[in-house]
């Protein structure tokens, strides 16, 4: 879980806010990269994070027979 929270922090704050200026120098398609993280990428990452967490906890629950 600590790892997931670290990813949460990195994707939103580090990539979307702290490093937005250097990242904006790189373009992917029509997006400056830092801007894309701030306006789109971070939200996709949030969704994936919860998905991974829910799936991991399901596996744990099954292993210990908790429903």
């Amino acid at each position: 879980m600590a790892i997931l929270l670290a990813v949460w922090f990195v994707c939103s704050y580090v990539l979307g806010i702290f490093l937005v200026e250097p990242l904006n120098g790189t373009r992917i398609g029509g997006f400056p990269l830092g801007f894309w993280f701030a306006h789109q990428g971070s939200i996709y990452v949030f969704i994936v994070l919860i998905l991974v967490y829910a799936a991991m906890m399901d596996r744990l629950d099954r292993r210990y027979g908790v429903d």
Partner: peptide, 8 residues
């Protein structure tokens, strides 16, 4: 982003 905190 708050939903990540909420879920975890």
């Amino acid at each position: 982003g708050g939903y990540v905190l909420l879920a975890l």
